[in-house]
Design a protein around this nucleic acid. Sequence first.
DNA 1: ATGCGGTCAAGTGA
DNA 2: TTCACTTGACCGCA
Length: 240
Amino acid sequence: MAAAEPPEQRAAAAAARFSDRDRDGGVVPVLPPPPCRQIRGQGLSCEYRLLFGPAEADGVLRRLEREVRYLPDERTKLHVFGKWHSIPRRQAVYGDPELRYTYSGVTFSPEPWIPVLDHIRERVASVTGHNFNFVLINRYKDGLDHIGEHRDDEKELVPRSPIASVSFGACRDFVFRHCESRGKNAKRHIEPVTLQLAHGSLLLMKYPTNVYWYHSLPVRKRVLSPRINLTFRKVMAIDK
DNA sequence: ATGCGGTCAAGTGA
DNA sequence: TTCACTTGACCGCA
């Protein structure tokens, strides 16, 4: 497990988004640029930063726990190796009403946006410059809840669009593994990249991360409290 | 129409 | 406690 290096470049580009020009052409800061850590590897390109301070994140988490409506367990069962399983987490789907989203063979219509989700979505947009029209929410009630290795490569995503992953609650390990270094007869040996996704954090996964890298949230038995993760996406409106 | 590639979670042992 | 590995029916796509 190798933690990725945080190269300190792009400061100027980041600052530019959080500033404006005055009459004489001088740069006037509008907001301080939030510190941002670059996560880089072969085909791996992410940005990690805190999106909410601890107190604000606490408030958002409480509102999420009160207001988010999760899909019933029977709608999210999976057939794996001949057996039906409940997924080891709970899921909710919110977004613009005309959109559809297919996950593991099941198509979902999103619930309409609610204020707490709009608040997070607007914060993400102000920091990243990207507007998202859809969010998949996963709630991991404790360290036994998890998700296996997968890529977010659904075909209804806008090609090359980033995915913004916002986390609240328990800090959990998040593991990236290169597609060619998985399993017994891996073609290559590329070290996994492990991140800790903190309360109030944003991980922006940029193209082509999801082409080459699987990610997972492994079991962590010592974690006893819940984590809620929101992955904001750009979904194409076209569907049959 | 058909064949093929990729997927998911749980259980086991190191 | 964590991790690698094994297990196959089903779906989407060419």
